[in-house]
């Protein structure tokens, strides 16, 4: 039962992207098409599950003082694996994700989950947590991507669905449209979950332990 909760919390209630506001860069950058959002989300999910698995296995071996560099190396290893696989299996997707595929390494969702969950919990809950968080991230990428693709080009997943007489609003596939769509979706999620959206804070920030900013402590408290 509690295993189920570890999985489902990431989908909506603690959605890493829309509620906890982590990993905003890829959310804005790759969501000009729903398809790219799906690809990016699944790639991130894979890295997240693998890194959570390895980190929860190694949590007793890794010395506390150097844990962040260790986590980063583990994550970067899996990212390299994913980008080599995508390069050879889905070259088109790999092309359109571009540099953001390598930047999964510094996605704060992955380091945040490693620091907050996997380094403190057993293997099975960590895998479920990674899976739930990853799928939550994928869902939000698809949501943002669908809205932008529909309004910007009249298509969803490449299928033409808007009637021809409606002129597509190109602004939505420009960067400005990305910021706007994400802002609106976060507001809607905030209303649905009846919780005021948190300010972009340090909750999952991997540097929280070393960060000496006075604001940081205030926001997490």
């Amino acid at each position: 039962m509690s295993y189920m909760k570890e999985f489902t919390k990431g989908l909506l209630k603690e959605n890493p992207n829309l509620v906890m506001l982590l990993g905003m860069c890829p959310t804005l950058a790759v969501t000009t098409m729903a398809q790219n959002g799906l690809g990016m989300g699944l790639a991130t999910t894979f890295v997240l599950v693998c890194s959570n698995l390895v980190i929860s296995l190694l949590k007793k071996v890794i010395p506390d003082a150097v844990r962040l560099p260790c986590f980063i190396v583990i994550i970067a290893g899996f990212v390299t694996f994913v980008s080599i696989m995508l390069d050879s299996l889905l070259p088109e997707l790999s092309e359109s994700l571009g540099v953001f595929l390598s930047l999964i390494t510094v996605n704060c969702i992955i380091l945040g989950r490693a620091e907050m969950f996997a380094s403190k919990n057993k293997v099975i809950p960590s895998i479920l947590d990674g899976l739930g968080m990853g799928l939550g991230f994928t869902l939000s990428l698809i949501a943002v991507g669908s809205v932008r693709e529909l309004l910007g080009t009249g298509k969803i997943f490449g299928l033409h669905i808007a009637p021809d007489m409606i002129e597509p609003m190109t602004i939505f596939i420009l960067p400005a449209g990305g910021f706007f769509t994400l802002g609106c979706i976060i507001a809607i999620i905030g209303v649905i979950t009846k919780k005021k959206p948190k300010k972009a804070g340090c909750e999952g920030c991997p540097s929280r332990a070393v960060c000496k900013q006075p604001e940081c402590g205030k926001e997490t408290a």
Binding site: I171, L174, A176, G177, F179, F180, G183, A187, G190, P197
Partner: peptide, 21 residues
């Protein structure tokens, strides 16, 4: 009320981005 916090920040960012276009 619904836009307080992050949503309004993102919408402001969107307008700033528009001006850089």
């Amino acid at each position: 009320k619904a836009l307080e916090g992050t949503p309004i920040t993102l919408i402001a960012a969107s307008i700033t981005s528009l001006s850089f276009v």
